[in-house]
Simulated scan of single mutants.
Amino acid sequence: MSKTTRATLALARASVPHGLRAYAYDPDAPRIGLQAAEALGVAPERVLKTLMAQVDGKPVCVLVPSDREVSLKKLAAACAGKTAAMMRPAEAERLTGYHVGGISPLGQKRPVPTLVEEQALRHERVFVNGGQRGLQIEIAPGDLVAVLGARSAALVAAAEEPATKR
């Protein structure tokens, strides 16, 4: 497996300290982020899944802990929008230039606004997809937010709230 991707190149160009961790990707896993956390032996709240969504028809990238679900209502509110919906996988692949299961928030073909769940900022290090299936980037959440020009917000669904399950 090559560990050079558009995501890792973006971090190298920005001189952002990070680590790379490869793992055995399971294409049949029902929840990719949870499978990555288990394979890496780290707490699932430290592995951030990359979700592509639309708010009022405009694309956004959303990073939430792999053991949580995004609240579309909270996402719309965080973007000062009215409605939010998850992007279809084919559209997410076309927009980012990555394959589902390997979509990274870094080095996307067309950068879009990015939101990071605020709970992720409490960790010393988090993991995000490295731009290919089976590759995770370990990074300080503050560095991740800075290099992405992202904003943090409360995005996860409460237990009683409808949510996504990607």
Rank of each mutant, 00 (worst) to 15 (best):
K49S: 08
R125D: 08
L148E: 06
K82Y: 02
L121C: 08
G81Y: 01
A78T: 09
G81T: 04
P111S: 02
R125K: 13
A150N: 09
V145D: 09
A163C: 15
C61S: 15
L40F: 00
R88T: 04
T114I: 07
T83E: 15
Q35T: 10
L72N: 11
Q119Y: 00
I103Q: 02
A146F: 02
L121K: 03
V112S: 03
A85T: 14
S15F: 02
D26L: 00
P111I: 07
V16A: 06
K165E: 10
K58P: 00
P111V: 01
P162M: 00
A154T: 14
V16P: 10
P113L: 01
A10D: 13
V60R: 10
V128E: 10
L11S: 11
A39Q: 08
G33T: 11
S15W: 00
R13T: 14
A120L: 08
T8N: 11
E69L: 03
P30V: 00
V116P: 08
V100C: 15
R122A: 15
T50K: 01
S71T: 07
H18G: 08
A153E: 07
R68M: 11
V156P: 05
A12S: 15
M87L: 15
R13K: 14
P162V: 05
Q132K: 15
V16K: 05
L48G: 09
R31V: 04
G134P: 11
A37V: 10
A163R: 14
V126Y: 06
L106K: 02
L63C: 03
R133Q: 15
A158P: 00
L9K: 15
E38Y: 06
R13D: 15
D56L: 05
L34I: 02
A146H: 13
G41L: 01
C79E: 13
